[in-house]
Nucleic acid binder design. Structure first.
Lengths: 116, 116
DNA sequence: CTCTTGACTATCGGAAAGTGATATATCATA
DNA sequence: TATGATATATCACTTTCCGATAGTCAAGAG
């Protein structure tokens, strides 16, 4: 089913931010919001509409699962935790690598032009 | 008019790719398409709909201008060249820096977690 | 010359994605 | 008890994205 990494289509912005935020480990929705904010230095302010809509899409697409195995946290736990699936993780890593490549390439054209 | 960099709202994906592509210098539309593809390792395949729509939006927003001063290229030049305005360039650089920060932070949580 | 192909710009309609407002509920703190 | 942060959820609206389509021009094939 899954294409080879090179062919993998890039994720929409909000999805990308979320899977990147989840690379560190499981988080609940609200924490994802905050973490996305931190990672982007406050530039990305994801509201609940974007968050839960995108999160559900990611679950539908099989990149994220709600962790049921963590119910034992507390009796009255309102939080819903999410983590990457194996596939989600690999997608996230591919995206991260691409981002790195992109930044490197663009940066190089900036400094490089003046020297030669 | 322009907000301080820290407050600058992040650009939508297509706009981001375009301004990053233009950081190297002016390009015509078709070349932007190709360059965006290259920079993203083929992951982003921007079609004409996205390209020209977004390009016009960027012009409206004052981040990009069509370079009129380059008409002398050839009599029958169909190409339309675009370049960043001063503001567009600064926006692009802020975005680039953010992207770098994002990649660094996410990368660090990956390798860093296991050590300590 | 004509036909095709690739470079190049352009627009349209619909689909996908993103967003703020709103709602609800719990908990801590003043 | 009122305020504000935590936390989840949905709705309606707008923005963004994208493929299909269309057209022009230049170069090369036949």
């Amino acid at each position: 089913m899954s294409r080879r990494p090179e062919n993998q289509k890039s994720l929409p912005a909000a999805s990308l931010h979320i899977v990147l935020a989840l690379l560190d480990g499981e988080l609940h929705g609200y924490a994802v919001m905050q973490r996305v904010g931190e990672l982007s230095e406050g530039a990305v302010k994801m509201g609940p509409g974007t968050l839960y809509g995108t999160l559900n899409r990611l679950v539908d697409d099989g990149l994220v699962v709600e962790t049921t195995d963590r119910i034992e946290r507390s009796e009255s736990e309102r939080r819903r935790y999410y983590e990457l699936t194996a596939n989600g993780r690999s997608v996230a890593l591919v995206e991260l690598a691409r981002l790195r490549t992109l930044v490197d390439r663009v940066s190089r054209t900036l400094g490089g032009g003046a020297i030669a």
